[in-house]
């Protein structure tokens, strides 16, 4: 499995979810566990560029795939991804726990072409719960990042 561009040979229990593999075995704890049953979106990562829930995927099923987590977003010079900056600018979180999942999902949302309007963003970001309820700010952040990413 490649994670953020690096190859890992993990030798895990078949039962280990991709989420637990990332957190407990690779030490990438940016990806969060909020329910472990596909109901909150906190564990969202990109697999081969698509946003998915790492809690509902067994790690063994991802052999040979490319996983991107929040730790893999910032560029080599450590400058933030436009989505990360947009989340800061728009105060798109409070406790910050759902945030890595929101950011990964938001990036997926834009690349899928589902960030055309505010209503689209709301609908296609509804798989990421935010109990602090930063939703309006999340939508604003995605609009900002979308436009910046288009320009770039």
């Amino acid at each position: 499995m490649r994670i953020n561009g690096q190859v890992y040979n993990l030798g895990l229990d078949n039962r280990t979810s991709l989420l637990d593999a990332l957190r407990d075995h690779v030490g990438l704890t940016g990806t969060k566990k909020g329910c472990d049953h596909g109901q909150c979106g906190a564990c969202t990562v990109l697999i081969d560029g698509k946003r998915v829930l790492s809690c509902l995927s067994f790690a063994v099923m991802n052999e040979g795939r490319e996983v991107t987590t929040v730790e893999g977003l910032a560029s080599a010079d450590d400058s933030l991804h436009p989505m990360q900056q947009a989340f800061i600018d728009n105060d798109a979180f409070q406790c910050g726990y759902c945030t890595p999942g929101q950011i990964m999902s938001a990036i997926g949302c834009i690349s899928e072409g589902h960030a055309g309007s505010e209503d689209d963003i709301r609908e296609y970001m509804s798989g990421n719960l935010c109990r602090c309820a930063a939703y309006p700010n999340i939508v604003a952040a995605i609009l900002q990042a979308r436009d910046e990413m288009r320009r770039a």
Partner: peptide, 21 residues
Amino acid sequence: IPRVDAGLKVTGQAGYPADLA
């Protein structure tokens, strides 16, 4: 002022208790 811990939170570096190695 933006949250002083915002950078840590958007990069996955903010250590919640179950994250601490």
